[in-house]
């Protein structure tokens, strides 16, 4: 089932990617080509196979509950596009 232009627009919105109108047909074709490759998986019988998320199947290590970080705000905010009074600024959020 090939993606339509409107599907691509929906995906781009979910991913918050602003696409050029003019590029949409080309992007749609490219995604369909990739999904065509990916869909070859469907031929494989994977009944009863446990999905593998990590190659080594290790388990999570736990960290002791200790405060190890100190205030580095100025250094970290030096790379921020827009800050004021120690806050990161974004366009007005309406709730």
């Amino acid at each position: 089932m090939a993606l339509q232009r409107c599907d691509v627009e929906k995906i781009a919105h979910l991913a918050r990617l602003g696409l050029n109108e003019g590029e949409l047909p080309r992007i749609t074709d490219a995604l369909n080509s990739i999904l065509g490759l990916v869909d070859q998986m469907q031929a494989v019988d994977t009944t009863g196979i446990e999905p593998l998320a990590h190659p080594l199947e290790a388990t999570q290590r736990l960290r002791p509950d200790q405060v190890t970080e100190s205030n580095q705000r100025d250094r970290y905010q030096a790379v921020a596009p827009s800050t004021e009074n120690g806050l990161y600024l974004v366009p007005k959020v309406i709730e």
């Binding site: 993606l3 599907d7 691509v8 995906i11 781009a12 979910l14 991913a15 990617l17 696409l19 992007i27 490219a30 995604l31 990739i34 999904l35 990916v38």
Partner: peptide, 9 residues
Amino acid sequence: QRRIMVGTY
């Protein structure tokens, strides 16, 4: 962008 979209989908 293509890979982000494939992954999102």
